[in-house]
Amino acid sequence: MKMSVKKKSIPFGDILIYGGLFLLMLVILFPMIYIISISFSDTGAVSRGEVVLLPVEFNLDAYRYVFKDARFARAYGNSIFYAAGSTAASVLLTGLIAYPLSVEGFSGRKPLTILLMITMFFGGGMIPTYMVIKNLGLLDNPLVMMLPGAISAYNVIIYRTFFQNIPPALREAAYIDGAGHFKIFRKVILPLSKPLLATMSLFAIVGSWNSYFDALIYLNDSRMHPLSLYLRQLIVNMDMSSQGMRDIMVQMDVNPRTIRAATMIVAMLPIMCVYPFLQKYFASGVMIGSVKG
């Protein structure tokens, strides 16, 4: 596939690539549109299998059900608050521990790495962790949604890898100019890590937004519940293996598919909007001109 002379015709490779990506998008979009359509359709029509791609008997009942409570708005606000806080905490703290690990010859490198690696595989479990958090007085405290999970060994490794890939020449140049580690971190590493920070921020936001388990066990006060937990109340997902369970389920009212679809869309929407903002950080060329000569 040689690009010898500047031809007007489109290179074959491009056709393959653009075409392939287009097919991929179709494969993804069709089911997505189907789910969105269900959320906007009438329950009966959905049961009768009439919904193929577009909504049938368009109505907002499902969404009205999801929005019906003041709890919804409060949960939404809580989720935004937790997402912001936990992302800030996570990015900051992970960066602070990853940078020293990326410095060659740092005396604490090995012990620190071992400390982190162990946490990647071994942990005490739900009950001991709960006891620790309880003893710290963090129950019913918004900080519990941000701090305990802020640092994961997995993320630290990724940050460290990225930091290590920044040409040492840049660090040395700053070092020669008399900068200490703090300054190097702030003025050299961070600005050049925009793609990394954007990615990890996105992951942190998504992770926080979808997580419900921590809120379930650490937040007793339902006014502090995030959206994910609120939505979980709307959809009952009980183990159906015992007749007694089935009986309780059948006693409660039916779980229409439209509501399930609507809750999913509602949860997805904000995150979908976050991504375009972060995309610009993935543009290449962040390092143009940074290394001279």
Partner: peptide
Amino acid sequence: AALAGIDM
């Protein structure tokens, strides 16, 4: 993100 970090 990693690709963005490659020197143009």
